[in-house]
Design a protein around this nucleic acid. Structure first.
Lengths: 368, 368
DNA sequence: CTGAAAGCGCTTACAG
DNA sequence: CTGAAAGCGCTTACAG
C-alpha cells in the first residue's frame, strides 16, 4: 500500500504531520499513554505524564481531530441553525452562541435556513451526518421529521426562540404573551387608550403568542382591540399601518410585533402629520442597534439574548454528560426599554410642539 | 474488543447505524464498489451501480462523513473567520458565504474574532486541526504566523476585506481609495466645498486607504482637507464630529469612514441646528439596512458583497482542484447609493426649510 | 497505571 | 471495471 500520510509543503520540503506514534517513540511510551495524557481522560503517572508532555512540546504535536471524531463517533462541534443571520436579532444570537461554544473549546457549524422548510431539512440531515455534540435550532418547521431523526440518533436538540413538536427536545423561548401585556400596560400608563397591534401573520407561533398577549391585555383593561397583520418588513409595516388607520382613525398607540414594521408605522404616521410620541405612542418587539438611532428612538421589548443562549448551551452540554433527565422548557421574560417613542411629553397632546434633539448615547435612565 | 459501534435509540430499540459493509452485503458487491458508487469517483458498471443504488435506498444508508474525512485527511468544511458577526456588513458577508458554501454541498465553520488578535490565533489554530477545504479570513492581524502555518499545511486561505502579509494567500478586497474619491467627487458636484472626513483610526488598512483616497481627491480638486479620527461607534462619531467642527466651523460636507460614525455626525449636526443635506451633505461607507430608515436617509458607499463572497468561494474551490497558480488579488469597486443626506434641494442653502416625509421604500431612482 | 491490539467506517493503489 | 486489503490516527476495554 502507498504511503498516503498527510502531506504538506514547508519551505519547499515535503513533510509528514506529527502523530501520536512519533510522540510515543520520542517519549518512550505507548501510544495509549500518549492518548491518555493528551485527552486527559484517565490518570497517568507523573513521570510518564511529564515525558509525554515534553515530547508533545518538542515535536509540536497537535492531535488529529478527524481521527478522534471517527473513533468517538462524535465531533466536537455544535450545530447552530438560525432562520436569518442578517436579522440583527439572530446575528446577536449567533454571536452569543459563538462566544459560549468557543469558551467550551468547541466549534460551531452555522446553518442558515432563510425560513425555508427545505433548507431546514437539508441542514438537519447534514448535521445528522456530522455527529455533532448537539444542535441549537431556531425552527422554521417545528414538525420536521429530521428533528425526530436527530433525537433518535441521540443528538441533543435545543429549540430556540420557537419550540418544536418532538417533546424530547429542550426549549428556550421568550415569553411573548407576557411581553405584549407589558407593552399594553406601559402604553395605558402613558395615557394611551386606542392601542392597535401590528402583527406578523402566519403559522409562526411567535406571531400568534404576541397577538394573543395583546388581545388578552386589552380585554383585561376594558379596551377595544384592533389589529392588522403584516410581514417582517418595512413595506408590510406600512400597508398594515395604513389598513389599521383606515379602520381605526382614532388610534393613539401602536404595538409592532417586529421592529421593521414599527419603522413602517413611523413613516406612515410622519406622512400623515401625526407626531410620535405625542399623538401616537409606539412600542416594538426586538431591539436592533438602530432602534435608538431613529427619530424618535423606539421603545422596544428586548429579549435577554445572551442569557438565553448561555442557557441553551448549558442545557446542551448537560445532556452530553448525562443523557437522561426530563426535557427542559425554559421561558425568559423580555425587557421593556423605554425610549422617546412612547413617552408623551404632556399628559394630553396639547401644545407639545418643539422638537428637541435626542441623544441616544447620553443618560438613558430618565424614565419620564 | 468491545462492540463499540455507533448506537442510538429508536422507539426504545438499540440500533446500529447502516455502514458500507451492510450495503455491500445487500447488493452482493464489495465495499470498494459501494464506495465508488457513493463517492462517484470512478466509473462503475451500470448493473453494479443500480444494485448498489437500490441497496443504499432500501437500507437508508448515509455515508459516515467522519470516516471519509479521516481517510481523506480533509473535511468538507470551509472556515469563515470574521471580525464581528453583529456588524451588519459582516452579517451579510456570512450570509453570502453560507449560501455559496451550501450550494456547493459543504459545511461552514463560523469563527468570530471580535477583532482580537488572540482569538484569531486560537481560531486559525483550531481550523488547522480541522483540515478544512479552505479558509475565508477577514484578518484582524494580517501578519499572524497561524496564517503562514495554514498555508504551509496546504490549506488555501482567501483574505477578505483586508489583505494579509503572506502573499501565497488570495485576496478579495474593496477599492477603498477609489471609493473615497467617488464620495468627494459626488459632494463636490453637489456644490459642497468644505468637505471633512471622519476616519477610523489605527492600524487597519481599511481606515488608511479610505483616508488616503479622501486626501488625494481633495488635493486633486484643489480643496483643503480636514479630518478627525474616531472609532467604529456612534459615540466616537460624535466626538470626532465635534472636534472637526471646532477646527473647521465652516464645514459643509462630511464623509464618514463608517456608517455608525455617520449617525454620530447626524446627531451632532441636528443638535447644532445644522440641516442635512441643506447645510451639510453626508456620505458614509457601508450600507446597513437602516441607512435608508434614518432621517434623512443616508447616502452610502456599498460594497458588492454577494459578488465578492461568490468570488472568494470560487477562488477557494479552484485552489482545491488545482493547487498551483499565482495568488489572485481581486479588487472590487464600491457603489455610491445616493439618498437624501447628500442631495441639496437648492443650489445654495437659502430657503429650503420645509420638511417633507421621506419614503425609503418608494421610487428611489430620482437623482436630484 | 501501562501496553498491545482491535477497530471506528471509509478510500484507494494494486493486482486481476 | 472489480475485489481484497491496508491504512487514515486516534481511543479504549482488556489483561497484566
Amino acid at each position: 500500500l502507498p504511503n498516503s500520510k498527510s502531506l504538506g509543503f514547508s519551505e519547499g520540503r515535503l513533510f509528514r504531520a506529527v502523530t501520536m506514534v512519533d510522540v510515543a517513540a520520542a517519549a518512550g511510551v505507548s501510544v495509549a499513554t500518549v492518548s491518555r495524557v493528551v485527552s486527559g481522560a484517565t490518570s497517568v503517572a507523573p513521570e510518564y505524564h511529564a515525558r509525554v508532555a515534553a515530547a508533545v512540546q518538542e515535536l509540536g504535536y497537535r492531535p488529529n481531530k478527524l481521527a478522534r471524531s471517527l473513533r468517538r463517533q462524535k465531533a466536537e462541534v455544535i450545530g447552530v441553525v438560525v432562520s436569518d443571520i442578517e436579522n440583527p436579532h439572530f446575528a446577536e444570537v449567533v454571536h452569543a452562541a459563538e462566544t459560549e461554544v468557543f469558551r467550551n473549546g468547541y466549534r460551531m457549524l452555522l446553518c442558515n435556513t432563510d425560513e425555508s422548510v427545505e433548507k431546514q431539512q437539508a441542514y438537519l440531515q447534514m448535521l445528522a451526518d456530522e455527529h455533532p455534540l448537539g444542535v441549537i435550532l431556531v425552527p422554521c418547521d417545528p414538525a420536521g421529521v429530521e428533528i425526530v431523526q436527530l433525537l433518535d440518533l441521540g443528538v441533543p436538540v435545543v429549540a430556540f426562540d420557537r419550540s418544536v413538536r418532538d417533546d424530547r427536545a429542550d426549549a428556550i423561548v421568550p415569553d411573548n404573551v407576557e411581553a405584549s401585556k407589558v407593552a399594553v400596560h406601559h402604553l395605558v400608563e402613558g395615557g394611551y387608550r386606542r392601542i392597535g397591534f401590528l402583527g406578523i401573520a402566519g403559522r409562526l407561533e411567535t406571531g400568534a403568542a404576541r397577538l394573543a398577549g395583546y388581545k388578552s391585555a386589552m380585554a383585561a383593561a376594558g379596551l377595544d382591540a384592533c389589529w392588522e397583520d403584516g410581514g417582517l418588513r418595512v413595506d408590510t409595516g406600512v400597508s398594515a399601518t395604513e389598513r389599521l388607520l383606515e379602520r381605526w382613525p382614532e388610534v393613539d398607540g401602536l404595538i409592532a410585533a417586529n421592529s421593521m414594521m414599527a419603522m413602517g408605522a413611523l413613516h406612515v404616521l410622519r406622512a400623515r402629520g401625526l407626531r410620535v410620541p405625542d399623538d401616537v405612542g409606539i412600542v416594538a418587539f426586538d431591539d436592533p442597534g438602530w432602534a435608538e438611532l431613529v427619530d424618535p428612538p423606539l421603545t422596544t421589548l428586548a429579549q435577554p439574548i445572551r442569557a438565553m443562549v448561555a442557557s441553551a448551551v448549558r442545557v446542551l452540554l448537560d445532556r452530553i454528560d448525562a443523557r437522561p433527565g426530563p426535557p427542559q422548557h425554559l421561558t425568559f421574560g423580555l425587557e421593556l426599554r423605554v425610549r422617546e417613542s412612547s413617552r408623551r411629553r404632556l399628559p394630553s397632546s396639547l401644545g407639545a410642539d418643539q422638537k428637541e434633539p435626542t441623544s441616544p448615547w447620553g443618560a438613558k435612565e430618565t424614565n419620564d
